[in-house]
């Protein structure tokens, strides 16, 4: 690893200013679970590392209408948060499946979002939940719907000097169930072949579907919100219909061939994951 200057600013504005001034020479780290590996492998060779860890007020979860998650909140804290588990169960479940407990203790929600790796679990779940990303700079703060946040793999709409400071997740309506599933080769620490999140809302009177969303990870350059899920609206979410919807969702995916397998297999896996996630979400909505 090349030596670098280490800066630990105390405020977002200060961090933002350093990033803006130093440009490509600066590298922002949160929990460091991805960043340290990149530094060690020489994927990035910054002049200075800006550690967000000293910035106050970026840690913590508030469930007050929406779920408001600070960027420096460890994935593990999201996994264990009582509010998240009761009303944003899909998100807590996705968090619980990230790598292993040691990584989850280090990795942060803001880091997982800002990194933009298409295989990561958290952005898929946030896409299904229709979250928005809060980004701040010296100029102020803005909220970006997660569907507009990603431009490509590891590429976001963040302007130079702009930092993810939090994520807001709207509360799903009553009678909603959610599920997140991933498929990895080998151990769960490995990058997934694919992952999928599903959210199903049922009309308790008719038992018909009042809302359905599905999202897929490692299914394209950015998280893919599957339009096909809306096909369940107003219908009974039977296993047969869910299978059809999942097959259509997999067609919306544009996975890439890589070390984790060929495109045809990833598409098959995505279909299965979406199907199983929708089935599980439906069962949870009924419960």
């Amino acid at each position: 690893m090349r030596p670098f200057e280490y800066i630990r600013p105390g405020a977002v504005g200060e961090a933002s200013q350093i990033l803006a001034e130093r440009g490509d020479g600066a590298f922002l780290i949160g929990g460091g679970s991805a960043a340290v590996v990149m530094l060690r492998l020489g994927v990035v060779r910054p002049e200075c590392v800006v550690d967000l860890g000293g910035v106050a007020g970026l840690r913590g979860i508030e469930a007050n209408g929406a779920l408001r998650i600070g960027a420096l909140t460890p994935i593990r804290a999201l996994e264990l948060d009582g509010g998240a588990r009761s009303r944003w169960g899909l998100l807590a479940e996705a968090a619980s499946q990230v790598a292993n407990v040691r990584v989850r203790n280090a990795a942060t929600v803001g880091g997982a979002v800002a990194y933009g790796e298409p295989q990561t679990d958290t952005p898929t779940a946030l896409t299904a939940l229709g979250a928005s990303v809060r980004a701040a700079s010296a100029k102020g703060e803005r909220a970006v719907p997660i569907g507009e946040f990603y431009l490509g793999p590891y590429e976001t709409v963040l302007a130079p000097g702009e930092i993810v400071v939090g994520v807001d997740v709207p509360e799903p309506p009553p009678h909603t169930g959610g599920a997140h599933l991933k498929f990895t080769i080998g151990s769960p620490e490995n990058k997934p072949v694919a992952n999928a999140s599903a959210l199903v809302t049922l009309d308790p009177a008719s038992g018909k579907c009042a809302g359905a969303r599905a999202a897929m990870g490692a299914a394209g350059p950015t998280p893919v919100a599957a339009q096909a899920a809306e096909g369940l609206l107003g219908e009974f979410p039977s296993p047969e219909r869910i299978a059809e919807v999942a097959a259509a969702a997999a067609e919306e995916a544009d996975p890439m061939e890589d070390l984790r397998g060929p495109v045809w297999h990833k598409r098959r896996v995505l279909k299965v994951l979406v199907e199983r996630a929708l089935l599980c979400a439906t069962q949870r909505a009924q419960a």
């Binding site: 492998l41 080769i185 080998g186 620490e189 990058k191 070390l259």
Partner: peptide, 26 residues
């Protein structure tokens, strides 16, 4: 699941644990 993989030009594609899966307790 483990295997070292080379591309057609003879370059090793997964000489790092990021892309080389290993068994774990799980």
């Amino acid at each position: 699941f483990e295997q070292m993989t080379w591309d057609e030009s003879g370059q090793l594609l997964n000489a790092a644990l990021l892309d080389y899966p290993l068994p774990t307790m799980e």
